[in-house]
Amino acid sequence: MTAVRTPPPNRLPARKPAAGATGRSGAQAAVSPMLSRLAAERATGVLMRERGTLFLSDGQVVHAESPASPGLDVLLTAGGALRPEGWWEAVTQAGPGQRVGRFLIDSGRVPRGALELCHLGALYDAAFFTLGPTSAPGRFRYGVAHWLGPIHPVPVDAVERETLRRRELLHRIWPEPATDTQPLIRTGRPVDVDVPRRRRTVLDHVDGARTASDISAVIGRPAFHTLVDLRRLAAAGIVTTSARQEPEPEPEPEPEPGAATAAAWPREAPGDPDIALLRRLRDALEAL
């Protein structure tokens, strides 16, 4: 008898999960091999990537910053936890010694627990954007420390796990990432009275020009929290990306060689409401 080897069947043409989604495999691919290596060698310094920076001390993450997320100063001063003058005094006096965090606590300006909570929120928030998918290589400079000083260091793998989990959370809420980055507009659909208060604050700042990051900076809230609310508002059909920016969906992945026509969906016809509706339907079905 002859064994017949058949080639494995072609994979069904499926759109790759949107950028930022981890898919259902549950595979915990490292978000940055370079970061894992730096953690293993207990490095101290700053990792600079396309969308932000991560400060390491002895292999642990002590701080993160991203242009997409509000800084600790914004978070603390927007809600009145600290006056802007108090922040600048601390930076001036303790910045050169790289112990601004310590100074804020010791001088009684911010209670320790509050600072830890706020800073951890800011750290994971900025790390989410910093560790976002990118094709640009990261750079690491050894020996650099942030002027804030350590507040509540966290292990690299905790930050990586959380970043992946957050991508998946956004994807589960609404698989269309456009509201994460583009100017936002209200669709005109009537808003239920029971839109939760915190989400309504986000909605109130949607004005046709602001992006998620802009809104976060104005209300002094971690940007990821705003992304979550915006995805929920997009899923409810209340918020969409500004019309002028359309069509700019996430870039279609390059068709894999050998894969059947990946371009089963037409490139968007500008302004065609049917295509937009079909895309929303497809995304919603894929998210099930």
Binding site: I105, R112, G113, L117, Y124, E162, F224, H225, V228
Partner: peptide, 30 residues
């Protein structure tokens, strides 16, 4: 002045305490 860890340890001193966590409910982060 207590930080996160001290507050959790204090909660753990309550009779019957098995575990204590501080969680962000928007993201689900511990």
């Amino acid at each position: 002045m207590p930080g996160i860890d001290e507050c959790l340890l204090e909660a753990m001193r309550l009779p019957g305490a098995r575990g204590a966590t501080v969680v962000d409910w928007t993201s689900g982060l511990a």
